[in-house]
Amino acid sequence: MAETKVQNPAAENDEDAALFEKRESVMLTPENAVFSRSEGGLISLDLTGPDGEREHFERVVVLRSFPITDPDEYIAVREPETRKSRRGHEIGLIRHIREFDEATVALLNEELDRRYFTPEIHRILSVKDKLGYYYWDAETSAGKVSFVVNNISSNIRILEDERIFIFDIDGNCFQISDVTKLDRASYRKIEIYL
């Protein structure tokens, strides 16, 4: 049985070396990657290299390369950024999340949904413009929320499939899956910005 290595990101002391000391990112597939939930509720990864060598990552971070248009493809799996290691190196990329079994898909999606928390706007109660800042009150899948949006032309993104993403000044993202399905009063409040 191949030896299992435990990663120790704190081993990097030399800043210059750290700048270029990168691991080779690999394609992660069900054949070489096993994801599991750690006791502390984090996502762990057991990776088998091409030479059969195994590596255990106690905690990994999953990120979407294309969170808006391709949320299930090109998922980056990285080491976490810590004070000691500074940069969290990429371990690998998942081409399609659906390549993995149902339980793994659910595990990864749970983590991704938490990171890319995007409440769906059901009803817009009001949008008020004050000196270039837009104060929104809306009913969403996460309850009633108030948020502020600036620079409307950049922070309201309309996709070809009619989906709308609204980014507030705190970096939160809200979604309207189909603007045509909004009630008439809600639609009239945002029509001017579309």
Partner: peptide, 12 residues
């Protein structure tokens, strides 16, 4: 790639 992936919307 690394700085792109640190952005909340990545390549988008």
């Amino acid at each position: 790639h690394d700085f792109i992936m640190r952005l909340p919307e990545g390549y988008e």
